[in-house]
């Protein structure tokens, strides 16, 4: 095939280029700029090479927040994905209850993040919050502002409440796309409910579930507002996940170099996981 060479066509790309430059590339480059320099004020910068990166990668503080982050993401994925699938399976396939269920499911997704944090903060307060008070009334000592376990419990249950709906809606869409003939064929083949799930529903949901895992991974890896409003990373540093630690370093301690290096490492990790995940998914498709 003969390609037509026309350099004027580059102008067509320009608007997109500008847009991407202003909302992604330029802000990112300022961070890159900070990550390799040291400043002592007065807008004077000195080149430092990879010093900040080395420091971040060797700091226990970074390791700890990364571990907490992985624990958080792993736990919410392990709860939200199966729970979302179970709820989607239990939802009606037709009738007047379908829209009711869908709206109920969509509600948590519509609540702004800081409101979710504030809501759960009050809800979980041991003296006046309904959940905190009830748990204590059951004889369990619960105080998320003082006990790490209670704090973690509240952070995770808040995320499950907020985001399981997303998994439900995706899984439900996947289930609805299965033609009736599959269920009829399964009945003719005497398939058990488990076999129907294992060989029909799960394979047909694979694509949407991969997307659900990817979205929940990215969102939970970058989550900031909700845990910040709820626990602020406390008690102590016990719920300080990566994003909270990053803001502490950048805006609390003004360690611009460290914070910038952390941002870049953080960004590359998210990118890497998504890329690995995406290519694994694509390879699975081709098989």
């Amino acid at each position: 095939m003969n390609k037509t060479w026309n350099n004027k066509a580059w102008f067509m790309v320009l608007p997109v280029l500008l847009l991407v430059a202003f909302n992604a590339v330029i802000p990112l480059m300022t961070v890159v700029n900070y990550s390799v320099q040291e400043t002592f004020g007065n807008n004077l910068f000195f080149f430092e090479g990879v010093k900040w990166f080395r420091e971040v990668l060797h700091s226990d503080r970074f390791h700890d927040s990364l571990l907490r982050q992985l624990f958080f993401t792993g736990t919410i994925l392990a709860i939200e994905i199966p729970l979302g699938v179970i709820i989607a399976l239990a939802m009606p396939r037709q009738g007047i209850w379908v829209p009711v269920c869908l709206v109920l499911m969509a509600l948590p997704l519509l609540v702004p993040w800081n409101v979710v944090g504030a809501m759960w903060n009050i809800f979980a307060l041991p003296d006046i919050g309904l959940m905190g008070y009830s748990i204590n009334a059951l004889g369990i000592d619960f105080n998320f502002t003082r006990q790490p376990v209670s704090a973690w419990f509240t952070v995770i249950i808040m995320d499950v409440w907020h985001w399981t709906s997303l998994v439900v809606l995706l899984a439900y869409a996947g289930l609805r796309s299965i033609p009736d003939a599959y269920y009829q064929a399964a009945r003719i083949d005497s398939a058990s409910a488990w076999a129907v799930f294992r060989y029909i529903q799960l394979p047909k949901m694979k694509r949407v579930l991969t997307i659900a895992v990817l979205l929940r991974f990215m969102d939970s890896f970058m989550i900031y507002t909700e845990p910040f409003v709820l626990t602020g990373g406390g008690p102590g540093n016990t719920t300080t996940i990566l994003s909270i630690d990053l803001v502490k370093a950048a805006l609390g301690e003004f360690n611009l170099g460290i914070a910038a290096a952390m941002s870049i490492i953080y960004f590359l990790m998210t990118l890497l996981v998504c890329w690995v995940f995406y290519s694994a998914m694509m390879r699975g498709e081709d098989e």
Partner: peptide, 15 residues
């Protein structure tokens, strides 16, 4: 104990 073949082929994808 009836067998039925549908309009669109129904197969178990993963098998």
């Amino acid at each position: 104990n009836i067998a039925q073949v549908f309009q669109f082929p129904v197969i178990y994808d993963t098998m």
